[in-house]
Simulated scan of single mutants.
Amino acid sequence: MRIRMKLALASAVALIGAALPGTASAATVDSAPGAWEPAPQEAFELPAGARCEFAVRVEPIVDEVRKLTLATYPDGSPKRELYTGALIDRVTNLETGATSTADASGTSLVVYGTDGSMTWYVTGPVLLGFRENGGSLPKGLWIVDGQFVVRFDPSLAKTITMLHGTTHNVCTDVD
């Protein structure tokens, strides 16, 4: 299993490296099925107990994320997309006003299943919310950093398989 994980992650990292501007030839980027386009994150609020024990707001203060569609299904829906770019979120405890910033500027190759599942092959930090019994981490807003794979089942429960990296619950920063 570990060898398959390393091979899958190495393949994803190689694909990411080949598709990133400045790391690939112009011909490689131009021959992709789509073009880079902005992929902005919307601000959102969650009630107390949903991810943190208190109501929380997450809003981007730097959002330069863009995506490249690498492949689509026959109906035009995405099959594989690449996401990259700077993303810094402000996390606010809506009960106390305490704030913290979270760097979620990772690069992800996202593979979409036809059943609503997704698999992310990630290098760098991303911010992931976990509900109670919603995956492989406890309830919280987690910065997961390193090289890892996140599998989302159709209900969006998440299972993280770390190659190497760290996890940090941002809820503790604004508690």
Rank of each mutant, 00 (worst) to 15 (best):
R4D: 15
R4W: 08
M5G: 04
A8I: 05
A12I: 07
V13G: 01
I16A: 08
G22N: 08
A24S: 15
A24P: 03
A27E: 15
T28N: 07
V29T: 15
V29F: 11
V29R: 14
A32P: 00
P33Q: 10
A39E: 12
Q41T: 14
C52T: 03
E53R: 08
V62Y: 02
V62T: 07
E64F: 04
E64R: 04
P78E: 01
P78G: 04
K79W: 00
E81P: 03
E81D: 13
L82P: 02
T84I: 02
A86R: 08
L87R: 14
I88H: 01
L94Y: 05
E95A: 14
T101M: 05
A102F: 01
A104I: 08
S105L: 00
T107C: 05
T107N: 01
Y112T: 03
G113V: 13
T114H: 07
T114P: 03
W120Q: 12
W120N: 12
E132N: 06
G134L: 06
S136D: 12
S136P: 10
L137C: 06
K139Q: 15
I143E: 02
D145W: 05
V150E: 04
P154Q: 12
A157V: 09
T161H: 10
L163G: 11
H164G: 08
G165S: 11
T167D: 07
D173W: 03
D173T: 05
D175M: 06
D175E: 10
